[in-house]
Design a protein around this nucleic acid. Structure first.
Lengths: 343, 343
DNA sequence: ATGAAAGCGCTAACAA
DNA sequence: TTGTTAGCGCTTTCAT
C-alpha cells in the first residue's frame, strides 16, 4: 500500500496525500480530513526509505562508542535513545573497542544517506583519519556531536565534562588527608579526558607544592587489564605511593583486582579516589570517593544538540550556525577511601 | 555521484554498473575491470537507501531490550554488534524499559522497510499485542529472533538458556549446605525466565522434600527497587528465610542494598545464590555463588541465526524453513555465599 | 554480454 | 487549493 492507493481511495492526487502526511498548511480542511480518514482506515504508514531517498535525509542517527559494555556508555546510550524516541529518530549503535582502526572502518562503512547525524565518543583526540571522516560527514550535511571526548583543534558540537577541574579536586581531596606520594593510573594519552584528568592530577600536586614523580604516572588505558598492570608497576616500586587516583571506571576495577590479589585494604594499605562511579560497589565494603557526573543527561543532551542543529538547517540559511558545546560539572562524592589510617 | 556517472565514465550502461556492483557473473571480464577501476578512482559508494527501496529490503536490524543499562543486555548487544559488523549489517538499538506499553509503541513505530530483521528480548512471554506485532513483521518477511526470553505458544527462532535447570541447581546448592528456609526474589511472573527460575526453585525444594512456603516467594520484577522491597518483605517475617535465591543481576543489587542497610553479612546472617553474575563484585567482600552464562555468545548467536534465516530466503523456496532455537547451558560458579555459619 | 526502460514510494517545483 | 510530472539512485525484466 502506498500513497497512490490512498490518493485513489480518497479521490485526490498523490501530492495532496503527501501534503497531508507532511502537515503542509496548503490543504483544505475537508480534503485533509478525508485523506486522514482513509489513512486511518487502511492503517497506512508512509515508506520512510522512499521518503528519505526523495528528500535526501533520513531519520536515523548513529552512536559510536569505544566500549559497548562500559556502563558509562550504556548510560549515554540510554540518554540518547530516550531523547531520540521522543523526537522520532532511530539510533544505530556501534562499538569501536578503543581502537582507531576499527573506528575508521566503521566510519568508512557508515552510509551517509542512512544517517541524519552522528554522535561519537572518538577513540583519540587527534586521530587525523577520524577527523577527516567526521569533517567529510559534516560537509555532506551530517552534523557531528562529540560526547565526553573532545577532538583537538576542532569546533564540533559536543557535550563534555570539566575533567581537569574535577580530577584536580579529587586529588586535592587526597592531599588534604596528608598524602604526598600519590600515583595515577591514566587513560590513553591520546584521549582528551585521559589527558585532562592527568593534567588535573598534576595541577593538584603543583598547587600544593608536591613534586611530580614521573614514576607515579602510569598508563592504564581506560582498561581493566592495563590498569591492573599499571597498579602493579605502581606498587612494586621501592617507594610505592600511599594513594592512587584512578582515571575511569575500568581502571578502577583493575586497581581493585590488584589490591584484592595482594590483600590490600583501602585506607589501611592505600587510599584511592576515582573518576566515574561504579554503582555496584555501593553495597560492598569498597566505598570509593569518586568523581560523579550526570551521564544519562549527557547522552540526552547530545541528542538534543543534534536535533537543534537539524532545526537550524531548516530555519535559517544553511551557512551560518551556532556551535553548541555543553560542559557539565562533575562533583566529588566522598565515601572515605581518601583516608589513610597510617597517618 | 551515482551509478549513471560511473556508467558514463566507464562507457557502459547503468545496468552494467549495477551488475558489477552486485557481483553478477554475466559481465565480461574486461568490462567489469574497467567499471571497477572507475568506481575505485572516484571512490564511489552505492546509495543503500536507493538499493533498499528498489529491492525492498535493507541491511539494518533492530535489537529491542528491556533495559539498556543492564550489563546483561550490553553484553548481548556487544555480541550482536560484533556479528553484525562482520556480516555488514547495522544495528538499531531500542530500550523497552520492561514496559509492554513502550514495547508496543516502539514496535509500532518500527519501519519495516528499514529493517531486515528483529532481535528482541520481549518484556512478557504472553503479551498478545507484542506477539501480534512480531507475527506481522514475520509475515512481511522480517525474521524475528528472540533472546533470553521465549514467548509462550510461539515458534520463533531464538537463543535461550536452560534457566529452570540451572536455577534448580543453584537452589540445591543452598540445600546441600543445610538450608531449609529458602526465599526467592522472583522476576516478573510474565517473563519466561522469571517463571522458569522460580520453577527451578520450586523443583529443587520438592526434590528434597522441603515444603514450599508461599511467603518465601516474593516478586522482585527484575528490578533493584522491587528486589529491595521483596527482600524487606522476606526478612521481616516472623520466621525469615536463612537463604535467598535472587533471580537476576538487578534483583541481586536490591538484596545487597537491603543487607547493607541492615548490616547483614553473607554467610553470617544469610546465605545467597544468584542468577547472572555481577562482575564488579569480584573485587569486593561480596562473593556470590552465581549462575553464569555465555552472554556475549548468546547475542552473537542471535545475530548469526538472523543471518541464516536470511540465507534461507535467498536459497530455497521461501515457504519451508527450519526453526532455529538454541539453548545454552548455564553453569554454577560457587564462591561461598551459599554457606551459613550458624549451622 | 549489454542496454533501454520501467518501477520501488515519496517529494517538490511548476502549472492550473 | 490541487494535480501533473519529473526526479531521488538503484534493480530488474525484457530486448538485442
Amino acid at each position: 500500500m502506498n500513497i497512490y492507493d490512498i490518493a485513489k481511495e480518497a479521490g485526490v492526487s498523490p501530492s495532496t496525500v503527501s501534503r497531508v502526511l507532511n502537515n503542509r498548511d496548503n490543504v483544505k480542511k475537508g480534503t485533509r480530513e478525508k485523506v486522514l480518514q482513509v489513512i486511518e482506515g487502511k492503517a497506512y504508514k508512509p515508506n520512510l526509505l522512499a521518503r528519505s531517498l526523495s528528500v535526501g535525509v533520513s531519520r536515523n542517527i548513529a552512536f559510536l562508542a569505544p566500549d559497548i559494555e562500559n556502563p558509562f556508555f550504556s548510560k549515554i546510550l540510554h540518554g540518547i535513545s530516550d531523547c531520540a524516541i521522543e523526537k522520532d529518530y532511530n539510533v544505530f549503535m556501534f562499538g569501536t573497542d578503543e581502537n582507531t582502526e576499527r573506528e575508521h572502518k566503521i566510519l568508512e562503512n557508515l552510509k551517509p544517506e542512512m544517517m541524519m547525524g552522528l554522535i561519537i565518543t572518538p577513540v583519540s583526540e587527534r586521530d587525523e583519519n577520524t577527523v577527516e571522516w567526521l569533517k567529510r560527514f559534516e560537509q555532506q550535511g551530517i552534523p557531528i556531536v562529540l560526547v565526553d571526548r573532545d577532538i583537538r583543534g576542532c569546533k564540533f558540537d559536543g557535550v563534555f565534562s570539566n575533567d581537569e577541574e574535577s580530577a584536580c579536586e579529587a586529588v586535592e581531596c587526597l592531599i588534604e588527608e596528608g598524602h604526598k606520594k600519590i600515583g595515577v593510573i591514566t587513560g590513553p594519552e591520546t584521549s582528551k579526558p585521559g589527558h585532562d584528568r592527568c593534567a588535573g592530577y598534576k595541577r593538584a600536586l603543583k598547587k600544593h607544592n608536591i613534586e611530580i614523580n614521573e614514576n607515579y604516572i602510569v598508563r592504564g588505558g581506560f582498561k581493566e587489564e592495563g590498569a591492573y598492570r599499571a597498579m602493579k608497576a605502581l606498587m612494586e616500586q621501592k617507594e610505592p605511593p600511599t594513594a592512587v587516583f584512578s582515571c575511569n571506571n575500568m581502571t578502577t576495577l583493575g586497581c581493585l583486582r590488584y589490591m584484592q590479589e595482594k590483600g590490600m585494604k583501602l585506607t589501611r594499605d592505600i587510599s584511592m579516589v576515582c573518576f566515574d562511579e561504579i554503582k555496584e560497589l555501593e553495597y560492598t565494603d569498597i566505598h570509593l570517593t569518586s568523581v560523579a557526573r550526570p551521564i544519562y543527561e549527557m547522552g540526552y543532551e547530545a541528542m538534543h544538540i543534534l536535533e537543534k542543529r537539524y532545526e537550524d538547517k531548516e530555519k535559517r540559511g544553511s551557512d551560518r550556525y551556532i556551535i553548541r558545546r555543553h560542559i557539565v560539572n562533575p562533583y566529588l562524592v566522598k565515601r572515605g577511601s581518601e583516608k589513610y589510617l597510617q597517618f
